[in-house]
């Protein structure tokens, strides 16, 4: 699928924004100024952006506990995201969700999810909404290799097939479910599992934006045109540990350094678009500078953003009670 210059610029900007956001959150967390748990997406950017570039505001995604990248790729406001991580009432979820439950339904982002395997059934519902109301919308569930073993995910494959839903399941296989290797924890093969449920399935290189974008485009077009659900098995790597604070002792010596040097999806993207003269180096460098400034501003604003008051504990439980 041929991408326009504007689309390539957007793809690079979104991936660079995710990377810069996550690298900065890593630093901020280490400084002890962020409350709670944080799971970083750095290294996996091509997956979120490659998929979401095929989606619009009328489409819905469900994310995982590692959700910042999906949020940014789906168009959520970066400053409001940073404020949310800081626990501000000005945050995307008014300080009630935090990193693990960050969401923006107005952007079709049905939430990061603290429950592994929580998203796929929800996405069957979002796809059902689109089908019943004939919006032409598509729903995408991002699932980790850990989540791929949950019954909710496997049941959702079946339900999506049985109901012929406009749904796509994206298994982001970064090799580790927390500290346990997916090579050990996943029985059988992701593609054959999907095919067993009757879902067309493709394995893609998650370090290559173009590969992801192409495969996702095919699956999303199929869903949008009434062809039912599909699965993508995206093989990729995360640069940080399961959560910030995890020493990552289960990883091999030099593993992460090697990944950063050899399999960085951002570097690959730069190289390809500049060498093939699709974009100029100055264009990409400009984006890098703008992204750095955006993240800097986001952090500066988030640090001083208003905190919720104790009375806010009681609001937003029900619409009426």
């Amino acid at each position: 699928m041929q991408l326009s210059r504007d689309q390539l610029l957007r793809a690079y900007r979104d991936m660079a924004t995710i990377r810069a956001f996550e690298e900065r959150v890593h630093v901020e967390f280490a400084a002890g100024v962020l409350p709670g748990f944080v799971h970083l997406y750095a290294g996996e950017e091509a997956s979120a952006v490659g998929v979401c570039m095929n989606l619009g505001d009328g489409d819905v995604i469900a994310s995982t506990h590692r959700g910042h990248g999906h949020c940014i790729a789906k168009g959520c406001d970066v400053k409001a995201m940073m404020k949310e991580l800081y626990g501000s009432v000005e945050g995307l979820c008014r300080g009630k969700g935090g990193s693990m439950h960050i969401a923006d339904l107005s952007r079709g982002m049905l939430g990061a999810n603290g429950i592994v395997g929580g998203g796929p059934p929800l996405i069957c519902g979002a796809a059902l909404s689109a089908k019943v109301m004939k919006t032409g919308g598509v729903a995408v569930a991002f699932v980790g290799d850990g989540g791929s073993n949950q019954g909710t995910t496997l049941e959702s494959f079946n339900l999506a097939r049985v109901w012929e839903l406009p749904a796509v399941f994206v298994i982001e296989d970064n090799g580790y479910a927390e500290s346990t290797a997916s090579s050990w924890a996943v029985g059988g093969d992701q593609l054959k599992r999907a095919e067993g449920f009757g879902l067309p399935a493709r394995r893609v290189d998650g370090h290559d934006f173009f590969d992801v974008h192409d495969a996702a485009g095919e699956a999303i077009t199929r869903a949008r045109s009434g062809g039912g659900p599909s699965l993508l098995h995206v093989v990729l790597d995360r640069y940080y540990s399961h959560f910030e604070g995890d020493a990552g002792t289960y990883r091999g010596p030099g593993e992460v350094d090697r990944l950063r040097a050899e399999k960085d999806c951002l570097k690959r993207f730069r190289k390809r678009v500049i060498e093939s003269a699709l974009l100029g180096k100055d264009q990409v460098d400009t984006i890098d500078r703008e992204v750095a400034a955006l993240i800097e501003t986001s952090v500066r604003e988030a640090r001083t953003a208003a905190k919720p008051s104790a009375a806010d504990v009681l609001t937003d439980v029900y619409l009426s009670y």
């Binding site: 339904l105 059934p121 729903a139 339900l159």
Partner: peptide, 17 residues
Amino acid sequence: SESAFIGAAAGAAATGL
């Protein structure tokens, strides 16, 4: 398949049905 369809009901409710 209660997990799938109860979850689907929740997701559908959050998205307009």
